[in-house]
């Protein structure tokens, strides 16, 4: 149970960062921290005590595999996380070149 709670705390740290930080780079970092906490949570749910990695080797007699379904889902989510992070960083560097700052208060007046 303690691992689920720690996971949730990690998610809350990311949420706190997204809401309170004013630097674009730190907001992106906080978003990726939230993503990581979700990944580890899904991997934790699929774990079975005494299970082995879900790869059929043919040498184990009557094996117990950990759940492959959350792992497949997380694999997709990790790659999409990379895509969103790259996109956000591109927007951040573009805004920096235009406004000369990462401060979101300075960038608020977006007028064409």
């Amino acid at each position: 149970m303690i691992v689920y709670i720690l996971c949730f705390v990690l998610f809350l740290v990311g949420l706190y960062g997204v809401i309170t930080r004013r630097n674009l780079v730190k907001i992106v970092i906080s978003l990726s921290i939230m993503e990581f906490s979700i990944f580890i949570f899904l991997a934790l749910i699929g774990y079975i005590d005494g299970g082995i990695a879900p790869i059929i080797t043919g040498q184990d007699i009557n094996p117990t595999y950990v759940d492959p379904l959350p792992q497949a889902m997380v694999l997709t989510a990790i790659v999409i996380g990379l895509a969103t992070t790259a996109m956000l960083m591109a927007i951040a560097i573009r805004l920096y070149r235009k406004y000369g700052t990462f401060d979101i208060r300075e960038i608020k007046n977006l007028k064409g």
């Binding site: 991997a43 990695a53 990790i78």
Partner: peptide, 14 residues
């Protein structure tokens, strides 16, 4: 963490 949770594919991708 992924390696400990028996998810080698996830570890490689991560």
């Amino acid at each position: 963490c992924f390696l400990l949770l028996k998810a080698p594919d996830l570890a490689i991708v991560q």
